[in-house]
Design a protein around this nucleic acid. Structure first.
Length: 486
DNA sequence: TCTGGGGTCCTAATCCTA
DNA sequence: TCTGTAGGATTAGGACCC
């Protein structure tokens, strides 16, 4: 609420930004002793995959996030390439977020591995010394509970705290003393400021503006002229180290969407239509899972030449009816030319409400086909995300179960993880987070002794009964196996 | 051998309505 | 009743973020 009005902008460095270091890659290294100290790249392994996270060892070779996987393989051919394990990372993230919430009720998660904390609101800090102490303790607690390292930035605003944590990486803490902000920012690249990406950066560079100091010299009017009202004003304020955005604990979702990039462009119109229906269903499952409904249906199409277009339609009222979303998506697709092929399709819903006000007109139109459709939807079952994503041509289902990096259990040899698979064989390394580097064995992909397994906790529960931060059922006893063989 | 997936926010054009 | 206008809603696209 009004804990931070414009006129009492804080002057103590009590905004904390936490950023876990190379989070996905670090989690994989912690879980797999044989990968520690090695180049690890996590991302999509298909022909059109990109890097989600590269370990610091992989970054030495020039591999970085958002890089096409093929390019990463050229730069670091000997790195370990793994697919992301969302549920595993989420469990660790929950533990970290629980530690943050112990510091303050005002925690603003930005993603699984990043969050802002308002230390002042939680009474955890009030000046530089107390803030630094809170940051040091937090890093130690994260280490103890998750076994992973995170970097902490402390400053008087969100922007500066984020810049500080960036400077602290990896495994460090940086505090920006109030009063030093402008001189600190002045020599930095304009790209340091949040909201300056490749396009804005180029724009500024062409105008001879490369540093934050030069942005200030250019003046607010010039920035507004170049970048538009909202962006210009906002960036000028940032350049002056003015940022009074509060830490916001609850942010409501504005849209829900799903999209798939296909390994091979789809040319067949019927297949395109089928995929759109599938995506619409998946989107509705997500929507319902979040207890939401929405009015605006959005279709996204990326064509063979990477040109991307969106088409949207706003209904009379919010819906979470799969039939309604499917039909809207199909209508939108009717207006799109897909000859030449599409590489990506997506379906989204925005204009969200947390209740459903059925569109009576659409409902009326539905009545005739209702029985058939209801039967369809039931047959698909409740909220069951298909983990495979887009169909991969030519991969047998049996091999598809063994995804690189995923945990497995062998009846005799115990716990391990898939190092690779293909040609009817799967290679497994038998090790656990707390074991020595394990040995490698190869099996037939249909070996009955081999089964998918849940990831093991990275840190065993402390025997001294220390404050157990049990955010998500983390513990040696893993619950009943989740159905699908992820 | 190009370029994922899930989001947010902003802008501009267009249409509709008061 | 006609017209001009202001402002909101819708639509599409782009930039940015992790």
């Amino acid at each position: 609420m009004a804990w931070c009005s414009i006129k009492d902008v804080r002057n103590a460095p009590t905004v904390l930004h936490l950023d876990m270091d190379a989070f996905f890659a670090q989690a994989e290294q912690a879980s797999k002793p044989s990968l520690r100290g090695k180049a690890v790249v996590v991302g999509g392994l298909g022909p059109r995959g990109v890097v989600a996270t590269a370990s610091y060892e992989a970054r030495v070779f020039g591999v970085h996030s958002a890089m096409p996987m093929a390019q990463a393989r050229r730069l670091a051919p000997n790195a370990a390439y793994l697919v992301p394990r969302g549920a595993f990372y989420r469990r660790i993230s929950d533990q970290v977020m629980a530690l943050l919430r112990a510091l303050s009720p005002l925690v603003e998660p930005l993603s699984l591995d990043e969050a802002f904390v308002d230390l002042e609101a939680g009474g955890a800090a009030w000046d530089s010394e107390s803030a630094r102490l809170a940051g040091v303790r937090l890093r130690a607690d994260i280490r103890a509970v998750t076994g992973l390292t995170g970097s902490v930035g402390l400053a008087a605003s969100k922007m500066l705290a984020k810049i500080a944590s960036e400077q602290a990486k990896p495994d460090g803490l940086v505090l920006i003393e109030p009063g030093t902000e402008r001189s600190l920012l002045a020599p930095m690249s304009v790209r340091t400021l949040p909201g300056v990406g490749p396009a804005t950066g180029d724009h500024l560079r062409r105008a001879g503006i490369a540093t934050v100091g030069e942005m200030v010299e250019a003046g607010e009017g010039e920035l507004v002229r170049m970048l538009g009202k909202a962006h210009g004003h906002a960036l000028y304020a940032m350049a002056l180290a003015r940022d009074d955005r509060p830490v916001v604990a609850e942010r409501e979702t504005k849209s829900v969407s799903v999209e798939d990039t296909y390994d091979v462009d789809i040319h067949d119109r019927v297949r395109v239509e089928l995929e759109v229906q599938r995506l619409a269903d998946r989107c509705v499952r997500r929507l319902r899972g979040a207890g939401l409904s929405g009015r605006t249906i959005v279709l996204k199409v990326r064509r063979y030449d990477f040109s991307t277009l969106t088409r949207s339609e706003t209904l009379r009222g919010p819906t979470d009816d799969p039939a309604v979303v499917r039909e809207a998506a199909a209508r939108l697709l009717d207006a799109v030319d897909t000859t030449g092929g599409v590489r990506l399709l997506g379906v989204g819903v925005s204009g969200l409400a947390d209740f459903t006000q059925e569109d009576l007109f659409a409902q009326a139109a539905e009545v005739r086909a209702a029985e058939v459709r209801v039967a369809d939807v039931r047959a698909e079952g409740p909220e069951e995300e298909t983990p495979e994503g887009p169909a991969v041509a030519g991969v047998a289902p049996a091999e598809h179960r063994w995804r690189p990096g995923h945990d497995v259990r062998h009846a005799e040899l115990g716990h391990g993880w898939v190092q690779g698979s293909g040609l009817g064989r799967v290679t497994v390394r038998f090790e656990t987070p707390e074991s020595e580097v394990g040995r490698v064995r190869t099996f037939r992909t249909d070996d009955p002794d081999l089964a998918p397994a849940e990831p093991l906790p990275l840190v065993r529960r402390r025997p001294d009964g220390a404050p157990a931060v049990d955010a998500a059922g983390q513990g040696p006893a893993v619950g009943p196996r989740q159905g699908s063989g992820r």
